[in-house]
Design a protein around this nucleic acid. Structure first.
Lengths: 161, 161
DNA sequence: TTAGATCATTGACTTTCTCAACGGTATGGG
DNA sequence: CCCATACCGTTGAGAAAGTCAATGATCTAA
């Protein structure tokens, strides 16, 4: 019962099974672009699975997090900060609105713009999701020390914007 | 002519335009999961644009790179190492095969398995793409010193597998 | 007041993701 | 040898994500 029904990268050690460690010697495994994509794939996959019971995904969490932050983001700002197309923000906000988690509020200073704010329901959802994601991150970063995590955060912060 | 036709994160400093730096104070900007996704999005977007003249994307480059490595990967191994579903590997190899860049060779020791190897054309394509991607990575990591890049590579290597 | 820019939205289309099934092939037990 | 079982590549389908163009409402500046 080593490999059960599931496919993909959800297994803890997706690569230890068969002899694919030899590819680590290849050039690809040294390219930061590839490693970043690999890490994010594993991370978000795991996070999405953990988040499934709440009916949202990491994508929607990121919007919810900003909506719950008190920073009053407009949809345009969400798109810019999350590096997503405005149309994607519309869909994301729609789904969160359908869950009763956020509300669109027209900005009185610019009636084109809509501020996204979390409802009480949204705040509760955010707290639950937050707990789950912090643990998910802890699992994903399992082999890293606290010091290394801090380093990584700092480095990513420099290249993410 | 500050912001021309394009949307999205293709601009060098996607966030410096408007006042979204305030979100950096939010909790989201401290989560490694988010930063990884952000960095990956910016990186692969830039890389894909740079790669466009060659008619391939980073996705296909990763397959081509392993095919050109001399490590004789099977499709199953490609899927495992790249953390992609087997069906995606099929599509990827199909497209590279259509370009004349790789060939499927039936493994004599297991006729179910197909080894993916680069053709001469594929090797040339790989070299060109490699140059482009190294420069793309350099751009993406612009603000990082050589020392920091090495650190980042090491940290990502630990969490990517 | 008006021309041009901006914001959210819609629609279309491509790519990526995820899952289930199927034929051909290998492997090990009877 | 035969058979059940597992595995590899492939196909197909549907959901999610990414990309781009166009539009109505609204703001801004000349």
């Amino acid at each position: 019962m080593s490999t059960s029904t599931h496919r993909g990268a959800s297994a803890p050690d997706a690569l230890a099974d068969q002899g694919t460690e030899r590819f680590l010697a290849g050039e690809l495994a040294q390219q930061i672009q590839f490693l970043t994509a690999r890490a994010r794939g594993r991370g978000s996959s795991h996070a999405n699975h953990m988040l499934a019971p709440l009916g949202i995904k990491v994508r929607q969490y990121s919007v919810l997090s900003l909506a719950a932050s008190g920073l009053k983001p407009s949809q345009r700002e969400l798109g810019e900060f999350l590096a997503l197309d405005p149309s994607q923000i519309v869909a994301l906000v729609d789904s969160l609105e359908a869950l009763g988690a956020v509300q669109r509020e027209t900005d009185p200073r610019d009636r084109r713009s809509k501020i996204i704010v979390a409802t009480d329901t949204g705040m509760e959802l955010f707290e639950k999701a937050r707990e789950i994601l912090l643990e998910s991150e802890d699992v994903t970063l399992g082999t890293l020390s606290a010091r290394e995590r801090k380093q990584l955060r700092g480095l990513l912060l420099k290249i993410a914007f």
